[in-house]
Design a protein around this nucleic acid. Sequence first.
RNA 1: GCUCCCAUAGCUCAACGGACAGAGCGCCCGCCUUCUAAGCGGGAAAUAGAAGUUCGAUUCUUCUUGGGAGCACCA
Length: 562
Amino acid sequence: MISPQQYLENLVKKAARKLTAKLPHFEMESKNISRFGDYSSNVAFSLAKILKKSPIEIARKIKSDLEENRYLDKIEIAGGGFINFFFKKDFWLEMFKNPLAKINPGKGKKVIIDYSSPNIAKPMHVGHLRATLIGDFLARLYKFLDFKVIGWNHLGDWGTQFGMLIAGYKKWGDKKKINKEPIRELLEIYVRFNREIKNNPRLLKQAQEEFAKLERQDKENKKILNWFLRVSLKEFNQLYKKLGILPFSVVKGESEYEKQLIPLINDLKNKGVAILSQGAYIIPLEKYSLPPALVQKSDGATLYLTREIASLIYRVKKYQPDEILYVIGSQQNLHLKQLFAIAQIAGLSGKAKLRHVSFGWVLGPNGKKLATREGEIIEAQKIVDQIINTARKIVSQKRKDLSKKEKEKIARIVGLGGLKYNFLKDGRNSDIVFDPKKALSLQGNSAPYLQYTYVRLKSILAKTKTGKGDFSLFEDKDIEIIKKLTAFEDVLENCLKDSSSHHLAEYLFGLANLANNFYETTPILKDKNIKRRNARLALIKAAAGNLETGLELMGIETLNRI
RNA sequence: GCUCCCAUAGCUCAACGGACAGAGCGCCCGCCUUCUAAGCGGGAAAUAGAAGUUCGAUUCUUCUUGGGAGCACCA
């Protein structure tokens, strides 16, 4: 079975083809307003433009063409040319009996999703957290839709700052301390180095020298850098584990491409893609209305972008992906545009479609960038711990009856769920305001609300055995839920199209609201009509299943008790 | 200076050029001897400003105002 929306779209397309050879784009949507039908379409308006006829006239033609359809109760024309479709009850019962086939738009295609990308020796901040959660959602979504997903973590481990870190380590470093608390210690060295540089400019030179050695593949410095990477990664992995993020397929530092850069630049020069300008090599991008991209500095050193190009070449060569998603903040919009333009000019991306999944800033409650009063960044780790703490307090207050172990489990799942939902419920392009103090909302459009609804549904199911039900006993409010259930796949397609989770969040919230309203107003277990009772048990089981699947796609766990 | 992004209810967010701009929080009102009140129902409340394109504009174009990001030797 395909979704009702798909079904109607196909139907209308067929009818429209009789009127014109080239189909215009049109909408088929569910408006949640009963007099606009189960689904409505603006196809007549779209056709009116090319056929130069009135929308009403076209709508009438389509209507008369489709009116005999066995699933449709009626078709209405309203609002100057909208076509509203009303399905028969039997259709919805049919939809419920034969659930939708799982869609598989991926068809086994390979996609690389590049996300998280923290810098080693530095704590992950709230921006990394957003990138990580968006990326993890996309990885789960693509997997669910039958793509072969390669999760890629491109670590920042190159640049003069690592010269500072190595110089600082050689001066003041304590190996034991670093092994114990790597990121804290390394950050301290970095901060101290920058502080002392003000009084002692020679330090900067030392840092540059250490970095230059690194560029020359100096064994000792490479070894140190590698060690920094290993211990940082150990700490990152603790956070990923705590968050319940899918494991990455590839974790690679930028520095790993270093050896390929000179051949790469030579190749670009030979092809005439890169040209000499003011002593440096640039790739002009006027054709793309972009400023030129610098790939080699006048001192011969390479840049971030150069390594990004090398990484792209490596990815394409090694994995032959059909698609590469870069989950990276909007401040790098230009950078990604340049990368994609270069890929096109030099033919680097193979068959892969490149896509920048850009996202906005995470702002604090005052609408400014999130920071403590001292101006430090707020660490992702602290946000996670803080929200679980908040959840712990609430749970121990609300459920004094539960065991400590169970309360702890609920606190973790509700806290993390609240956090993730907070980042995933909004469209990714806008800046979002994140107030760590208010982040765990229990009411309304929040993960705990969805988790609570799931628990309520499961709890009803747990109290009884199910038997054979008679679906024809369903009433309007049951059908409302069936309608919602059948839209799930369409919602996932929207998420895929926009690389955004907010459609799914909105859907799950709507479904949960329907479900809550349903069991609030409809006694199920006490229903004397056993066939209807069983039918409704099947219905809420399906609703719970949808909630669970949807939450799982957002990386949010469900519970049986809350 | 140039380029790009953003501006929707008191607050936080929705709305692929479509029919009356939807939600949540907060506020006001009602519902717990009945499957977990982390719930359900109801109410007040918004497109920054000006012009244009269109049958139709929150959406597209131009300008204004206000915020943010980026723009050759950082990553």
